[in-house]
């Protein structure tokens, strides 16, 4: 199958075949990352612009390593200290990024939908590295790759996502990547942090809401814990961090409710002792470090596929 997409904005309209193509390419990239010299010349002469208008270290570094492993030139633009802080509009920033000759723009932005705005206004390929509460497609794909690697196949598997669902672009992109591959997703979290329609049974296709975490975990094939933003407490959505940890934290006892060897994932950075116990985060079921390596590989696969689409060829 020849790759057709020019941008990676969200995977909510991707077919199973497209997701599988990315995951298969990711497998080849994992092997490249295991070589003594992890640099291939595939994207020589291409420029990847990392435009992060919202704080990020892990994702930005992951994209940077991915681009460098393919020999692309990498330029970083962060919000602080850039023209964005001086009041430049997103429209003008895009003009500048395009004029700089970027072949791929990787962007993170606090406003949901910002990458769509950019994609309409540039010749470059756009990869969404997280937009507001909306989507973080590379995280969804790397979680799917990691779970597929651990479970072999996602058909008929049940994965639990626990935490602050409402504000989580990771949860949405995980659903968008896992459900097309045949998995079902059980969402769990405090009712104040789950969209009201989802609480009332109108959950996205392939998902259900289970307010009791213990019941959600019973017999599950894997779990993804979401990072708790501590400012949610100040917004009145949580009584206390300690209560959250007790009711929604992944303890060693809790994860044993899943099937034996069912893996534990977390997108990072973790609040150990809040959404996940340190012993679980570093325990035998934890794939959290594997996620980091796989993240670089999945981003290599996407950069490779996008840089090869016809519109990108000079």
């Amino acid at each position: 199958m020849t790759w057709q997409r020019r941008h990676v904005l969200a995977t909510d309209d991707w077919s199973r075949a497209e997701i599988e193509q990315v995951l298969d390419q990711t497998g080849a990239m994992v092997e490249v990352l295991g070589r003594p010299i992890r640099r291939t010349p595939a994207l020589r002469g291409r420029t990847v612009i990392l435009f992060f208008a919202e704080a990020s270290t892990r994702t930005r570094v992951s994209f940077e390593l991915a681009a460098k492993a393919l020999s692309a030139d990498v330029t970083n633009i962060t919000a602080s200290g850039s023209s964005v802080e001086k009041g430049e509009t997103l429209r003008d920033t895009v003009r500048t990024l395009t004029a700089l000759g970027g072949d791929v723009i990787v962007m993170r932005h606090a406003a949901s939908g910002a990458p769509y705005f950019v994609a309409e206004r540039t010749d470059a390929a756009v990869i969404n590295a997280g937009d507001g509460w909306h989507a973080h497609p590379t995280q969804g794909l790397l979680d799917a790759y990691t779970l597929r690697g651990a479970l072999g196949d996602l058909d008929g598997r049940r994965i639990v996502i626990v935490g602050d669902i409402t504000h989580s672009r990771v949860a949405r992109s995980d659903i968008d990547a896992l459900v097309p591959l045949g998995a079902t997703v059980t969402l769990s979290g405090p009712p104040t942090l789950v969209p009201s329609a989802w609480r009332c049974g109108m959950t996205p296709r392939g998902t259900t809401y289970e307010p009791d975490l213990d019941r959600a975990l019973d017999g599950a094939d894997g779990v993804i814990a979401l990072r708790l933003q501590k400012e949610r407490q100040h917004a009145g959505l949580l009584p206390s961090i300690r209560e959250y940890a007790k009711t929604w934290g992944l303890s060693e006892e809790r994860v044993k409710r899943m099937r034996p060897e069912a893996p534990v994932l977390h997108p990072g950075p973790m609040n150990e002792g809040v959404e996940i116990a340190a012993s679980v985060a570093h325990g035998a079921r934890s794939l959290i470090e594997t996620q980091v390596t796989n993240g670089v590989a999945v981003r290599m696969a996407l950069l490779y596929l996008l840089a090869g689409t016809p519109e990108q060829v000079a």
Binding site: A28, A42, A307, A314
Partner: peptide
Amino acid sequence: TLYRDDLTRIGHAPVVRES
């Protein structure tokens, strides 16, 4: 595949298989 000298000219991304 990742070492081909015509990658930027062929207009599509050929499948990379695992070495």
